[in-house]
């Protein structure tokens, strides 16, 4: 039977053994540090991300209701683009977004994404309220939304490009305008 008890280093070997042990310890430290860094990164990501994430945008009706509270603050506004309201003048795109029968007039100063052209596409805009008299499909308003960042919020509805049962491309989604006390001009 061999002796398998831990081997005591010879005096000459002691340094080498110690050096090896030191290397092992250092490796452990590196791995643990790496792990901790990852953890910190994860928590930071979560904190930064979720601050925005849980209340990612305000719908058009909510943004109007909270106008006083919002003041000049930047926030994200969500609504469907009213196709007949889109005009492009120089670098500024003017249009209205509609949600729950509340319409917000928007002046957008950056290039809109390609899908912005699809009628009634939902968009999320980043910007703030500005004073100014405007007329929307819902009536007169004292403020418009000045935005410099737009993303298209596409839905989880998918349909083949050429299928008959799709609503005509310029029509609002079913039920979207049902409760609205105003008419939306067709494109």
């Amino acid at each position: 039977m061999s002796d398998l008890s831990p081997r005591l280093p010879l005096p000459a070997d002691a340094d080498r053994v110690e050096a090896r042990r030191e290397l092992g310890r250092r490796r452990k430290v590196i791995v643990v540090t790496f792990g901790l860094l990852l953890l910190v990164a994860a928590v930071a990501l979560f904190a930064i991300g979720l601050r925005d994430a849980t209340e990612f945008f305000r719908n058009a009706d909510e943004a109007i209701a909270a106008r006083d509270e919002l003041g000049e603050r930047r926030f994200r506004l969500q609504g469907r683009v009213v196709p007949s309201s889109v005009t492009i003048d120089g670098g500024v795109t003017t249009f209205e977004v509609l949600h729950n029968c509340a319409s917000v007039s928007v002046r957008h100063t950056a290039n809109p994404p390609v899908l912005f052209q699809s009628p009634w596409i939902p968009v999320v805009l980043l910007g703030h309220w500005e004073e100014g008299d405007v007329v929307t499909v819902a009536g007169r308003d004292t403020h418009y939304f000045l935005s410099d960042d737009m993303v298209v919020k596409h839905t989880n509805e998918y349909a083949a490009a050429n299928e008959d049962r799709l609503p005509a491309p310029t029509e609002a989604p079913e039920g979207f305008l049902d409760d609205c006390p105003f008419e939306v001009p067709r494109l």
Binding site: A53, T54, V114, L115, V151
Partner: peptide
Amino acid sequence: TWGTYWQWDARLTTTVL
């Protein structure tokens, strides 16, 4: 589709996490 590579919304943030 959205017009952006990334946004810190809840789905994207939790997926990165």
